[in-house]
Nucleic acid binder design. Structure first.
Lengths: 226, 226, 226, 226
DNA sequence: CATGAATGAGCATTCATTCAT
DNA sequence: TATGAATGAATGCTCATTCAT
């Protein structure tokens, strides 16, 4: 009956799913999961309401499909380029951390709608879904940094007594108040400039995390460079 | 000709509002604003559905009344005791920061349901309401710390080039990944112990923020005491 | 127990009922029976909601009490003065009809709210109530005129073949379009002036109703005056 | 890619709207606008409650759609045949007026439910809507007669001093007490027979409106022509 | 597969009436 | 008697989902 190959069909189906998910994500981010209607999403996607049910079981299925289909590509792109970036700056810890901070803030800013979706949909999720969602959102983002910190600790550049899991999370967390408020909660508190925040916090973290031989981060950096 | 005095009446009304708000907060926290029904709240409060409308204009009014009636008392209690605590530990910056961190984590843990409510209700709020909410939640929590950091900078204990607003936010932010995930998003990542996290991050922050002459916070403190 | 005589008590009760009915009538006329709330009426009457139920069985009882308590006094006043007025002008039919027309339009204008109430409440009434209500509103108003026309027919001033019941209703009816639209439906079609309408319609009716001997109403009047 | 043409679709939609409006009109007429429930209407129309909202914005929209969809056809039918009827009887004023009277009473009787709806809905309308409604109902009904009277006045058959707008309204108004009470207010005062009422009132009006010299309109016209 | 009309369960809100004080 | 808080049934409207075409 079908005039196209199964593979081509699957590609078409995937394309259609992407199209609908993009629409769903946009609407979810704008209105929250509960206030988003299937009619909204269908209109945004340019399909009929009923068509959505040919690709997704129900409204909740749209939600849980967003991480796999929309977030994973972003994360994979970031994860893929991260090692190279880290390697390129491995001789200068503060260049490296600056890069990570820039990366995190940029990616979060560009994908803030996903965080808004996550937040709006929390009440509809059960514990397992929440866990899965969060792991995708958070762990990937932190994993690379954690590994790198671990390597730096081993190399002696960072303190032996530093728990790399805690430190990696704390480093990212330092930027949360700024990112969360402006990008996710969408409150315009134009007080802070990201570059200024990064320029302040990277050295602060580095001085705090570096091995105590020098008096400050500057000497630590110097020593590290040898 | 009411049989009770206006003052007594007002007290009764306030008590009733509290009773209903407590119920609403509990339900909102558990199911999110949109999925909570008036019937849920009425059942939880032990009143009839219609009675709720004798005290609140509508469902949204329950939501916006929660900060004033449930959050402000918490914030005021914290704000009231904070100066005394900061003063008591003013000679030991890491004792002070440890105290602040303990305070923040404890208060957030005990009032996580309010944060869950706020997050779940974000999509129902317009920008102005969001702003107002956020100010109540964030600024109070950070204001005291920011002022204290400013004082420490002036006294020379902390670096001159430290922006106290950024530093205060960043310090609180460091704990976000741990608090937010476990208490607000209610994801059980039982990996971290708060005491351990605090014990790790307070010194890290302090080393990073302290004036650069000494090798660690202890010497900085000693020097500062002279 | 009561410190006042039963008669005085009854008077007080009646006064209170009047006060509440006045309020109810005003609200019913303004918003219609169904959209009027007991709270509206209580506020307008300056009493508590519950107090209304000390004087009236329920909301419908307010409605059916309006004719007896508010309309009958008006009708009785009109009915009482009508014979005298008719007698005073009995020698000039067009003076008489002008008077009746002025009376009808004036009374209706002043009591239009009762017609608005009647119209708004029609759907809530059963056939019997409707009948009773209408009889009070319409029949009284027409009865006097009908009797007078009957007398004039007998006296030969008006045509023998005139059915006085039909003629009386038709005479009043001629003014309906003007009164109904402006006073009851409250549509501002400022096209017509009541005096002009009366000056046009009274002679028209009279010429049509008078005995055919003369060429016009003027000669009929003259003849009648002898 | 709907399987049916847009034209067919529109026809289906219109048919459905008619079906629902007929049901709504029936219920509104029986219970009044406010006491009619969407469930009533849906049951009467044989559709689900929700389906009504696929065709009408809300309950009020049902109401305001009734004139356009149910009343206009009636008015147009009457308006269309009226000129022919008036022309056919133009040489006999009382045949003409009898025809008009028969027409008005018949149309009102057959469409009394619409008038009951309009009356019941008055309190829900603002002044502008009321005005619009009234124009549709009244002006059309009176317009043709007013024009015809104007022509008769010009031709000399009716008195020069007759205001045709007032006379047209008054003529229709004469039948109001009979029609309104029986058909609209649905009070059974079986006293009057329409034929008898018409036979009484048409000559009465005609004698009153005709030019004064002759016994009937024919001689009046002749005299006027000199 | 695509469509969009039909469905009906679900919910916020109103309001007449009751009743303890 | 006066009060007004408490009640809960009633209702307009929404929207996820189904299914005939």
């Amino acid at each position: 009956m079908s005039r196209i190959t199964p593979a081509a069909r699957r590609a078409l189906v995937d394309e259609r799913k992407q199209q609908i998910l993009q629409a769903a994500a946009k609407i979810f981010a704008a209105k929250g999961f509960d206030r988003a209607t299937i009619a909204d999403i269908a209109r945004q996607a340019g399909v009929a309401e009923g068509s959505i049910y040919n690709y997704f079981k129900n409204k909740g299925d749209l939600l849980v499909s967003i991480p796999r289909h929309l977030l994973e590509p972003v994360i994979e792109a970031v994860s893929a380029q991260m090692p190279a970036l880290l390697a390129a700056t491995s001789d200068s810890p503060d260049a490296m951390l600056t890069l990570v901070a820039r990366n995190v803030t940029t990616v979060v800013r560009q994908n803030a709608f996903i965080f808004r979706i996550l937040l709006s949909a929390l009440p509809t999720m059960n514990a397992a879904t929440r866990q899965k969602y969060l792991n995708q959102v958070v762990e990937y983002a932190i994993g690379a940094l954690e590994n790198h910190l671990r390597a730096q600790i081993k190399s002696g550049a960072l303190r032996r007594d530093l728990n790399p899991a805690i430190a990696a999370r704390a480093f990212i967390g330092m930027f949360f108040p700024f990112i969360l408020i402006r990008e996710v909660l969408q409150v315009e508190s134009a007080e802070f400039d990201y570059d200024q925040v990064i320029a302040t916090l990277v050295p602060l973290f580095l001085r705090g995390a570096a091995t105590p031989s020098g008096a400050d981060g500057a000497s630590a950096r110097k020593r590290n460079a040898r």
